[in-house]
């Protein structure tokens, strides 16, 4: 079975224009792009948004980036995808920008105390303390 046979993925690829893909399904340049795709797929399946709604918000995001000078060569597609995801979940009240920032900083603390090559894991203590940079 190829990945595109998965009905949820096929609906996403058909409903959202521009998803970078080959004959068999979406392609990703970096691991986080795959995670961003998977998160949107999961939230869609939970009914948080329709693909039509998503496509419209994503198009707005891309237009905004183009106006700001983004070359739109496809290499920044998932950057726009990510901005759309953060916007959707804050607008729908799933979480707030403040909470996102608090968790982002916690992950930075977690990374900076984790020796290179070891898995980085979030601990309660990571939500407090100064950041190096």
């Amino acid at each position: 079975m190829t990945a595109i046979d998965d009905p949820a993925t096929r609906r996403a690829v058909e409903g959202v224009p521009g998803i970078p893909r080959d004959a068999e399904g979406p392609v990703f340049r970096e691991p986080w792009e795959g995670q961003a795709f998977a998160m949107a797929l999961t939230l869609h399946d939970r009914g948080l948004f329709s693909w039509a709604e998503w496509a419209q918000l994503l198009a707005e995001e891309i237009r905004r980036a183009q106006a700001a000078g983004d070359p739109d060569t496809g290499e920044t597609y998932y950057q726009h995808w990510w901005n759309t995801l953060e916007r959707v979940i804050t607008e729908k009240g799933v979480t707030s920008t403040d909470t996102l920032l608090r968790y982002r900083d916690a992950w930075e603390r977690a990374a900076s105390r984790t020796p290179h090559g070891k898995p980085i894991e979030l601990q309660p203590g990571d939500f407090e303390g100064p950041l190096d940079c």
Partner: peptide, 16 residues
């Protein structure tokens, strides 16, 4: 020590 890119930090934050 480890370092994560800005986008990797944001992805992990939202996933958590």
């Amino acid at each position: 020590f480890s370092q994560l890119s800005e986008i990797a930090l944001r992805v992990r934050a939202l996933e958590s």
